[in-house]
């Protein structure tokens, strides 16, 4: 795969405080990377350095193999709370953004219109942005970030400020963009990250503490369990007594922890059928990102 961007030892110090501390990672072209971490972990500062807003104290960023590129020519950036000039309309703002990123006048106009329609603002083209709701601003923010078809899309908490419906809609838009361009987005909401990611970067206290694909994380941290739903609580207890493995109980539900043990699904099924238990459901569960995250952070 082609490496689009490589960050090496990125640090940003504000006085004594290290907002970002020696962070290194690569972004492969046409992949989506989620930057995960609690508030104050240094996600926004990292994105700001990549966007060319903040100059790093140490470290380097190389884009397409070159360290002295004007990176701003190749990125689209969506801040967590995008702010627009309230006296410009949506189309005027997007058109200006496109022109500033190097599109010609006619192309800028056409692309601005097309992009606004894509994000669902087709009916609000000529409305002043000062009258926009939070959800509309987020859509416009996305439009201005993608109108010039950047090679790298940097999104800071793209859906955190939205209500569930708005979040779903923006998430769907982002998924349409996945694999069309390279995306790096930050979030503290792990469900969002689980939905669209080829690579995960975990940040805490300014440091990058883990990185890898979702599957790698699952293998590394997940404690797979078998979850069995019985017809009643007494069935669960009966099973627990008969079982050679440790079983966690919760009413009619029992879990068998598979970590580090040589327990296979067929063993469990064999035991279940031999005892004639009333079973509703048996399934293998893998850890959610939420659980992985808690482990990584600890």
């Amino acid at each position: 795969m082609n490496v689009l961007l490589e960050a090496t030892g990125l640090s940003k110090r504000y006085g004594e405080q290290k907002a970002v501390d020696a962070v290194s990672f690569t972004l492969d072209a046409f992949t989506a990377t989620a930057l995960i971490g609690p508030n104050g972990a240094g996600k926004t500062t990292t994105l700001s350095m990549l966007a060319g807003l903040v100059t790093q104290t140490e470290g380097s960023i190389s884009f397409e193999g070159s360290a002295d590129q004007e990176i701003r020519s190749h990125i689209g950036f969506l801040p967590q709370y995008p702010k627009f000039f309230p006296w410009l309309s949506a189309i005027e703002f997007t058109e200006m953004a496109a022109k500033l990123s190097g599109l010609g006048a006619r192309e800028a106009r056409a692309e601005a219109q097309k992009t606004l329609e894509f994000v669902g603002l087709g009916k609000a083209l000529n409305k002043r942005t000062g009258t926009f709701s939070g959800g509309m601003k987020q859509r416009l923010g996305l439009a201005q970030a993608i109108v010039h078809k950047p090679k790298l899309l940097l999104l800071d908490e793209p859906v955190s400020a939205l209500d569930p419906v708005g979040r779903r809609q923006i998430m769907n838009l982002l998924k349409e963009l996945q694999h069309q361009t390279t995306i790096l987005y930050s979030t503290h909401i792990l469900n969002d990250a689980e939905e669209m990611t080829d690579q995960l970067l975990f940040m805490q206290h300014g440091k990058l503490i883990e990185q890898g694909s979702l599957n790698e994380f699952r293998q590394r941290y997940a404690e797979p369990k078998i979850r069995i739903e019985f017809e009643g609580a007494e069935e669960t207890q009966r099973f627990e007594q008969a079982s050679p493995w440790k079983v966690e109980l919760a009413g009619a539900i029992g879990w068998i922890d598979l970590t580090g043990k040589q327990v296979s699904m067929s063993d469990v099924l064999a035991l279940l059928s031999s005892g004639r238990y009333g079973v509703r459901k048996v399934e293998k569960q893998s850890a959610s990102l939420e659980e992985i995250f808690m482990k990584v952070v600890q």
Partner: peptide, 13 residues
């Protein structure tokens, strides 16, 4: 201060 400049500054101006 109000952040409207951000979306200008991230462009190659």
């Amino acid at each position: 201060k109000n952040g409207t400049a951000t979306l200008l500054y991230v462009r190659p101006i």
